[in-house]
Design a protein around this nucleic acid. Structure first.
Lengths: 230, 230
DNA sequence: AACGCGAATATGTATAGACAATTAGACTGG
DNA sequence: CCAGTCTAATTGTCTATACATATTCGCGTT
């Protein structure tokens, strides 16, 4: 039992009231002056606790009116999109990457126009295929990628360590394996695949566009929402 | 152009340096004393800016060592899991719900033991099937659900307004349509489906366990990672 | 060279006070 | 009854200071 800071303790006690349902949405949360007296501390301290809850979306604060329990309109989950190499090794499996093709082409896609490096390859876990990847990388944005050894290092891993802190959007859907995909992943044509399409920007400019097709039985994505969160 | 608070301005300027790549991962961020002199403000103000960035995961702060740009190990995306009724109407389509079965049973599932209400139904968009739903609701946790008219209101919508602020976990995968599923959704057996399994707790006690099978062509999930303003 | 230890340093937490900004609610005049 | 105004409650921001805490660095000893 480590001594938690006071503002953290206050935060957690209020959070517990909300999550347990004792304070329903719309209910008034004690104000800063009130909590200040209750805990015998300075206003900045309770402010830190309440601001944190407001930032997390659990409460809504309005000047003059007070602090109220927010109503959850859309549950926004946190989806951890880890680097595949890291994720596979974290599961105790041996990660592998097989580069199938590599071309420098001029893309005419509206999402990613200009000169790109086009890659195709397969991610392996313990030697068996896990996912097929088709990727475009803007060589205007990342010229260094042309010199990278992308047969040894998966492009996602390489990019993560060379072009950090990008903005991204993931679209998740399902699809049936095409003949080409089935051959690459060694599955039957028509087998269901989990498809993740990720677009990545750096200061507004497209960096990479990737389609990953996972063998459905071997992969799933997990998104969590919650305070304590196991 | 509204006057942003000073701590917000400081935060944004540092964030811009990081996102543009000017300060790469591992680079040292000016310390609180330094920024305090630079902006001519109190330490608490720059502390608020840096703490905020640390909370967002953009920087890592270590006592005695200083503040450093973090390396993005796993991009954590925000996945908005909205209520289906809301999502469909937001797309300009007419939302519908058809309840197929409703049973009160005693569940022996380890994830959700005890008395439950078991429901099956289909979500419709503009009259055509969008997703099949199989749901268990703990009647110990939510006894009021037994009196709800779940033919008129989809259980997800009902729960959202009656049992707010729960913790949840979503597992996203792909599967091939079983004969029963194909019949309910009016698709072919073996067609790919996007499957979302959501477990929901309230103060640690299971509230609901739901499997949603989306017709792959008609639905996709979108997860975004933006700096802050996104 | 290896180890232990103290000190310097940067962050973490907290206080007490001040003023600004917002706005719900009361009050006022028509 | 309505519209406009004023007031006061509440949060938002910021200052200046103090002490706590963790951790790196260098020094001295072995």
């Amino acid at each position: 039992m480590k001594a938690a800071p006071l503002h953290e303790r206050i935060r957690r006690e209020i959070e517990a009231q909300i999550l347990s349902g004792a304070w329903p949405p719309g209910a008034r949360v004690p104000g800063e002056i009130e909590l200040m007296a209750q805990y015998g501390c300075a206003r900045m301290t309770v402010n830190k606790a309440l601001s944190s809850l407001a930032h997390a979306g659990l409460v809504e604060r309005r000047r003059r009116a007070g602090t109220f329990v927010a109503r959850p309109r859309s549950q926004s989950m946190v989806l951890e999109i880890a680097d595949l190499a890291r994720e596979v090794t974290a599961r105790g499996q041996a990660y592998g990457w097989r580069l199938l093709s590599r071309h420098e082409v001029l893309s005419t896609l509206p999402e990613m126009p200009g000169p790109v490096l086009e890659l195709e390859g397969v991610h392996l876990a313990d030697g068996t295929p896990l996912a097929f990847e088709h990727r475009l990388i803007s060589t205007a944005q990342v010229p260094e990628v042309l010199a990278a050894d992308l047969a040894a290092t998966a492009p996602g891993t390489w990019l993560l360590s060379h072009v950090p802190w990008t903005e991204a959007e993931n679209r998740i859907s399902a699809s049936a394996a095409s003949p080409a995909l089935a051959r690459a992943l060694n599955i039957a044509v028509g087998d269901p695949c989990l498809t993740v399409t990720r677009r990545t920007w750096r200061s507004g400019a497209p960096v990479t566009l990737v389609h990953q097709h996972f063998i459905a039985q071997r992969h799933e994505l997990v998104a969590r929402f919650g305070a304590s969160g196991g």
